[in-house]
Amino acid sequence: MEVGQMQRAWVEYTRSLFREGFLDAQFQQLQLLQDESNPDFVAEVVSLFFEDSERLLADLTFVLEQQNIDFKKVDAHVHQFKGSSSSIGAQRVKNDCIAFRNFCEEQNIEGCLRCLQQVKQDYYLVKSKLEALIRLEQQIVAAGGSIPMEELSS
């Protein structure tokens, strides 16, 4: 594909992500922070997010498998996950986390387990989407073009 096409594809894809609620304005802010001095900012942050999230999810799963669930710990983890997902703009994940926390407070094990599933689902979804986006960006850059951030604001 030639650069123009790829750029258009990128724009369209990003817009769709926003439309479908996978990402929110926070992600846009991150995109704006990226420039010549920080060319891989978004990719960096995203990969950090992935790492962090994997860890958190693993922890959560572990804690919820216990006999005596330590809801405080669960709460702490979910809180963290909520924080990082909101700062990257992963909207769906964040909303799931909010619900998750409510169940935590109620100490509702069923609810928590269900939420965990939901969160995981949404997380993997957004992960794949973001990975695709980053790949597209890398392709554009490799082809010598630049990422048309400004088109997003239109």
Partner: peptide
Amino acid sequence: EDTPVLQRVATIMLEK
């Protein structure tokens, strides 16, 4: 800040 993502983002933001 303990959340790595947030740490990174805020750092870049402020350094900018």
